[in-house]
Design a protein around this nucleic acid. Structure first.
Length: 562
RNA sequence: CCGCCUGUGGCGCAGCUGGAUAACGCAGCAGAUUCCGAUUCUGAAGAACGGGGGUUCGAAUCCCUUCAGGCGGGCCA
């Protein structure tokens, strides 16, 4: 937590508690066990910098009217050596507190001092977290949902790092199982089509252009030499040819999106080193499996699920859940991450309880797995939803999106809403380089700050140093609003991390830009009294630091000119 | 049928560990720049928070119910 905010709140809390203790000691109030109360920032700034609801919370305890209790508390308060300047009782019994000028001055000087580190904290205490996101099928191009997952997962990982978690990013490559078989089949047929007539693509094969391109590229190298080989050999060769290209492509495309992973984890490694079969054995040993109609079932109903599910099919092939269980076991047990976070499409929500049930059966605390479910994205152009058909292979891909929309805008837009809300991505707005685009609004505020500092520095006016006492001159409402917002950054990042919701810091930085613009139009910098001018310049610098820190966290450019 | 998610002014949304006149953007109306970047700011208008019930001194926030929409409930992934 931000030291200064925490310090102020701590002072408020102990001041109130001391006052009520004193009143109880003097028998003005009956001696009682006290519930916790809240210290919050009032929506309306006329209600002070912080408001305390203690008198209302304790109304029942003391069997007195809230305002009466508030009177007693206030008359016993001692503000000596605290940031608290004054207080008043208001409304139904709130105690509103006003903080001293030194509090505001401390915030500004603290921000300037910490610079690029301002906003960081050690809330996570080094806990090891693995964030897995995108994990798109390597059998084809990434779609628009992957674009959201990418921006979300990457920013979430950054937010976690910023508040003291040890974080790694991971991409899980489904390079085994059914979809790879389907991939092989599709490549095979496209390859054979080059040399034979009358070969149809079945309904459930991949119809995309990329498959045709792979087949052609393969044919350019190998000619028809594979036509007469066995189907199995041909498919194997085709997959071994195309899959690495696809994986490389995923890496390149995500790289353009400014996403880099610590690990690209291949599903096949779980099969090759026997982890999947070991998981099946462990699950059998747990006593929560049974055989029915030649299939091996997991008794998920033992763990509160409404249905059991199949682990190994009657034909002896494990279902997709087995490698998934093995994979998560690997994350939490083998690699000893304290926490695994998966970013998944909401269509996977039904599967989460099953996975957790299996982990529980394996003796793993399932609460160490957190799944962030993300609702689908629709693309909107000219107010119309763009329908993407998977069948024709014409779904809007991440690459086409990024061709059209600046990376900054894409990353910002996908973090504009909480993950679990349906989201329409407005292509026109994202491309719009004007006031209506929130990314530009924030970037403009930063560029404006840089411009002021740059110009006034050139004129020899801005010296980038300010006396501490001068900072106490920042008393205009717009200045105070801005400073208080700056003070909230650290907590905002923590709260974003707790909620697994990077959209909170997107909103934060938008609001910061607003408050800066308001300050800017209400308060002149240039031409003011020397001390005040330096103080305001310092406030500009501090604001710039915060905007830059947030944008950097989101891997969005903070332009000094635009 | 069951489960998860969503429902706030014309549109898009914030608030949702309960608190004082429900915040903001867009569209729209009226204004502001001799001076630090107008991609900005100010003002007016516009919603009792899907409906109903409950808990509470106090509910957009918690509980129940109901309606509407999205997604799930495969020996598909």
């Amino acid at each position: 937590m931000s030291l200064l905010v925490a310090k102020a709140k701590e002072q408020i809390k102990s001041t109130i508690l001391n006052a009520v203790d004193k009143a109880m000691a003097e028998n003005i109030l009956e001696k009682s066990e006290l519930n916790d109360f809240a210290i919050e920032v009032p929506a309306n700034r006329e209600h002070g910098d912080y408001a305390v609801n203690a008198a209302m919370v304790w109304a029942r305890t003391f069997k007195k009217a809230p305002r009466q209790i508030a009177e007693i508390i206030v008359s016993n308060c001692d503000f000596t050596n605290t940031y608290i300047k004054s207080c008043e009782i208001a409304g139904p019994g709130f105690i509103n507190l006003f903080l001293a000028d030194s509090y505001y001055a401390d915030i500004v000087s603290d921000t300037l001092e910490k610079g690029a580190d301002y906003g960081k904290s050690n809330y996570g205490n080094g806990e090891r977290v693995l964030v897995e996101f995108v994990s798109a099928n390597p059998t084809g191009p990434m779609h628009i949902g992957n674009a959201r997952g990418g921006a979300l997962g990457d920013c979430l990982a950054a937010v976690l790092s910023a508040c003291g978690y040890y974080t790694e990013r991971e991409f899980y490559i489904n390079d085994a199982g059914n979809q790879i078989n389907k991939f092989g089949l599709s490549l095979d047929l496209r390859y054979l089509q080059l040399y034979k007539e009358g070969i149809e693509m079945p309904e459930d094969s991949y119809h995309g252009e990329d498959i045709i391109a792979h087949a052609k590229a393969f044919a350019e190298i190998n000619g028809d030499s594979f036509v007469d080989k066995s189907e199995a050999d041909r498919r194997k060769a085709l997959v071994e040819f195309a899959l690495p290209k696809n994986i490389k492509g995923l890496e390149t495309d995500l790289g353009k999106y400014r996403i880099t992973y610590d690990t690209w984890f291949k599903e096949s490694t779980l099969h090759n080193n026997g982890e999947t079969s070991r998981i099946i054995e462990l699950l059998k040993q747990s006593g929560h499996t049974y055989t029915e109609e030649d299939a091996l079932w997991f008794k998920a109903t033992d763990f509160g699920c409404d249905k059991d599910f199949v682990l190994v099919r009657a034909n002896g092939v494990p279902t997709y859940v087995v490698p998934d269980i093995a994979y998560h076991y690997n994350k939490l047990v083998t690699r000893k991450f304290d926490k695994a976070i998966d970013i998944l499409g909401a269509d996977h929500h039904g599967y989460v309880p099953r996975l957790k049930a299996a982990l529980t059966a394996l003796g793993v605390d399932a609460s160490r797995l957190d799944v962030v479910l993300m609702q689908m994205v629709r693309l909107v152009r000219d107010g119309e939803v763009i329908k993407a058909s998977k069948r024709s292979g014409k779904a809007i891909t991440l690459v086409t999106l990024l061709d059209e929309v600046p990376i900054d805008a894409a990353r910002f837009f996908f973090n504009l809403r909480e993950p679990n809300s349906h989201f329409d991505f407005d292509l026109d707005l994202a491309v719009n380089e004007s006031n209506s685009n929130p990314v530009y609004y924030v970037q403009y505020a930063y560029a404006r700050i840089c411009s002021i500092l740059r110009n006034l520095e050139a004129e020899g006016i801005c010296r980038r140093t300010v006396g501490y006492d001068d900072l106490k001159l920042l008393t205009m409402p717009e200045e105070r609003e801005l400073i208080l917002h700056i003070s909230a950054l650290t907590d905002e990042i923590i709260s974003s991390a707790k909620a697994y919701d990077p959209a909170k810091i997107t909103h934060y930085v938008e609001e910061l830009a607003t408050k800066f613009h308001k300050f800017y139009s209400a308060c002149r910098v240039k031409g003011e009294d020397e001390k005040l001018m330096q103080a305001r310049l310092a406030l500009c610098s501090a604001t710039g630091i915060v905007i830059k820190n947030v944008l950097t966290l989101m891997k969005i450019d903070a332009p000094e000119k635009m």
